[in-house]
Amino acid sequence: MKAQTNTLDYQEYMQNAALVFLERHQAEHLGDLSTLLNRTINHLVACLDVTESVAVKLASLAHIELVEIAFRQRLDLDYSSDTVVVIKDPIKGFYWSVPVSLIYERILNAPDNVRLRSANS
Rank of each mutant, 00 (worst) to 15 (best):
E68P: 01
L33H: 03
L102R: 05
L33T: 11
D9W: 01
Y95R: 02
Y10E: 06
I87M: 12
E68K: 13
L8V: 13
R72C: 01
I64Y: 09
S118P: 02
Q73V: 11
V85F: 09
F71L: 10
D76K: 09
A59C: 07
A46Q: 12
V100C: 07
D89W: 05
N113I: 15
Q73A: 06
S34V: 15
T5N: 03
A119F: 03
G93C: 08
E23I: 09
V20M: 01
D76M: 09
S34L: 09
L61M: 11
D78K: 07
Y95V: 10
Y104A: 12
E68M: 10
T7A: 15
I103V: 15
Q73H: 08
L48V: 06
V20D: 02
D112Q: 11
L30M: 00
T40N: 13
P90I: 10
A18G: 03
R117I: 15
L33F: 01
I64W: 07
A119C: 04
R74C: 06
T7G: 10
A55V: 14
Q11I: 12
D9H: 03
S101H: 10
R115F: 08
I69H: 06
E23F: 00
L77D: 12
W96F: 09
Q15S: 02
E28W: 05
Q11V: 11
N120C: 05
L30V: 08
L8M: 06
F94R: 04
L108W: 14
S53N: 04
L8F: 05
S34P: 00
P90F: 02
R72M: 02
V67A: 15
R117N: 12
K92Q: 03
I87G: 10
L22P: 00
L66S: 11
N113V: 14
I69M: 07
E68Y: 06
S80H: 15
R117S: 13
G31A: 03
S121C: 14
V56F: 07
M14Q: 04
L58G: 04
A70H: 10
L75H: 10
V54S: 07
A119D: 03
A55S: 14
R74Q: 12
N120L: 11
H63Q: 09
T51M: 01
F21E: 02
S80W: 15
L75F: 14
H29E: 01
L58N: 04
G31P: 00
